[in-house]
């Protein structure tokens, strides 16, 4: 099992209110699986994704990635584990604005302590794979939205993670670019990876093998997606 969430709960509290963002969620994703989580805004989708990615410690329940509990690790060990095992793709791309495409793609390599030449080799390969050869030395501001998201995808895959967590990756893309990104995610899953996609995009469900609808922090329904066919 690549990702296993058991009865995970996360509550946000402040002086005036308490919000149960995720409540008693259990979820397993195996190698080769592409799972899409849908739901209305504020239903806890992003919280679930961050919790699964070792970025947000749950109040209750356990999280295991590749049979390891990231929250049992020290912050630095967890960061290194994240760098080696999990890839992230975000709606806002979150590329470092002053680094070129190639440097952005290479950045996770610094965290994973890989050799520079190896990182560069992989980054060159990924930029080629995602059609960014001509854009390698451009900064994000010079790229189109689709190119930025492809650069973010390439960055997420640099350390060859098994698990890819994507938060609304198609939210800022046109139809054609969104389709390309979803195809890339499917391809990643098909190559013994696992994808947990959080989205509003109905098209994404068509690529997933399993669809989960989250409502008020709880799993409302689970369905088999078109991608399973």
């Amino acid at each position: 099992m690549l990702l296993q969430l058991d009865s995970v709960s996360k509550t946000y509290k402040d002086a005036h209110s308490t919000v149960h963002a995720v409540e008693d969620v259990s979820l397993q994703i195996s190698e080769g699986e592409f799972v899409a989580v849908q739901g209305p805004s504020g239903c806890g989708k992003s919280t679930l994704l961050l919790t699964a990615g070792g970025l947000l410690k749950p109040d209750a329940g356990s999280v295991k990635v590749n049979d390891q509990d990231p929250y049992a690790m020290t912050p630095d060990a967890r960061a290194e584990f994240r760098a080696q095992s999990i890839g992230f793709v975000f709606q806002q791309f979150h590329l470092v604005p002053y680094l070129s495409v190639l440097e952005n793609v290479m950045a996770p390599g610094m965290a994973a302590k890989s050799s520079i030449s190896e990182i560069r080799e992989r980054a060159l390969h990924l930029t080629e794979r995602f059609g960014l050869v001509d854009r390698r030395h451009h900064v994000p501001a010079k790229l189109s939205s689709g190119e930025r998201q492809r650069a973010a995808m390439a960055r997420a895959l640099l350390n060859q993670p098994k698990l890819l967590l994507a938060d609304e990756p198609t939210g800022n893309l046109d139809h054609q670019n969104a389709e390309t990104v979803l195809n890339d995610l499917s391809e990643f899953a098909a190559n013994n990876g696992a994808v947990l996609l959080v989205t509003h995009d109905e098209r994404a469900v068509a690529h997933a093998q399993r669809g989960i609808i989250l409502q008020d922090g709880k799993i409302a329904t689970t369905s088999i997606g078109s991608g399973a066919e």
Binding site: G53, L55, P75, D76, A79, E80, F81, R82, A83, Q84, F88, F90, H94, L95, V96, P97, A107, P108, M110, A111, A112, R155, N159
Partner: peptide, 16 residues
């Protein structure tokens, strides 16, 4: 802030 957040997310340690 955003840049540091993303670097932390992709695995940069606090020391880095």
């Amino acid at each position: 802030t955003e840049e540091i957040g993303i670097l932390r997310a992709i695995g940069f340690k606090s020391k880095q």
